[in-house]
Design a protein around this nucleic acid. Structure first.
Lengths: 194, 194
DNA sequence: CAGAAATGGAACAGCGGTGTTCCGTTGTGG
DNA sequence: CCACAACGGAACACCGCTGTTCCATTTCTG
């Protein structure tokens, strides 16, 4: 046994950090396109040997877990950037959409492979999820967001529309900017107070 | 070789028709829950031997193809039942949502595994898809549906929301009726003329 | 009830992905 | 420049799924 990839305390080399990122990024691309892709596919996409992938992530589940952690981290950062507590709720929701949309393929993983986050993070509800629900509830209290709809449902609506927009940009040739604009338009209408 | 499962002309026995349905139904359930499920899983869910599954569908791809055909057929029937050409577009859209929602797990397959339909049916756009787009365009011409949004985008919106609603009923404990009501509410708002 | 239809299950070979080991090669940093 | 870290690739055993064959058993049907 005696794996050298656990990367514990000793300052992880810059080299290692780079290849690690390359693998994770490739994994996002490959796995978001095909959930059942083999590790060889990931390795090839990362421009790395299959062995090396195993050096960094002993088992497939380890890669998935790391992927989950990575996505969750970026989600967290995006949430912070959106400054959800500032200004009217609808504007904050737009900022949030914008930031989340930038997550790109990682968005697909979040949606398609709930195991990624539930498992890896163990927590069913991400921090970001809670932030989003609270934002919606704030809007409902403000009277700027539809209070007739359940906050959790509206949360799902937002995710679904983001997913739809990204898929439209990915599978159909729609330019990302166009898809995002449509998405924001619909989100605005769907969430607006009645 | 000499397979007896091709089920050509000779009036398919009632028995065979029943087990065939059992397998297809089980496949919908199992595969919608887990795309990578084995044929043994499908067989077990259908209360049938793995051998029997292969007797009806020689290869996995044959099962998938039959599944695609089945789903497309039901989609077609649902579309007819919705009488999309009658009355104002928004009402017709609601009827369509209602019918599509009843497709249940089959909905997930439609969404999650586009290959199912694209492949099997070979046609990228289902008949039902075209009907939906035309309905939306009719509404836009009538002035009863948001004309600022692209019809194809609104089509995706409807599918996404249906998906979200079904998922909410499936994964979270939300009663189907509640989920459907929320869904219709949001669809109405999202599609409404601005 | 007898024959045919339909099924279940065991058993088998083949395939592809996985996880691991070993060793030779590259390249990075002190 | 030289030692050590990092990597690539071949090779291996293992496992689960697949597709197929064969035969015994159950279940329709005339």
């Amino acid at each position: 046994m005696e794996h050298d990839h656990i990367a514990t305390a000793p300052t992880e080399t810059a080299t290692r950090a780079r290849t690690r990122r390359a693998i994770l990024d490739a994994a996002v691309t490959v796995l978001s396109a095909n959930h059942g892709a083999s590790l060889a596919d990931v390795a090839e996409a990362a421009g790395v040997g299959r062995t090396t992938v195993h050096r960094y992530f002993a088992e497939r589940s380890d890669l998935v877990a790391a992927l989950g952690a990575d996505v969750r981290e970026r989600l967290q950062e995006a949430t912070v950037r959106a400054r959800v507590d500032e200004g009217p709720a609808p504007k904050a929701l737009e900022r949030l959409c914008l930031e989340y949309f930038e997550l790109g393929d990682r968005l697909m993983l979040l949606f398609d492979v709930p195991q990624f986050l539930s498992w890896a993070g163990f927590e069913e509800e991400t921090d970001s999820d809670r932030v989003l629900v609270r934002l919606i509830e704030r809007g409902q209290a403000e009277g700027t967001v539809d209070a007739e709809a359940d906050a959790e449902w509206l949360q799902n609506v937002l995710w679904s529309l983001l997913y739809a927009a990204w898929m439209q940009a990915r599978d159909y040739g729609t330019p990302r900017h166009t898809a995002l604009t449509s998405c924001l338009h619909t989100v605005r209408k769907a969430m607006a107070a009645s």
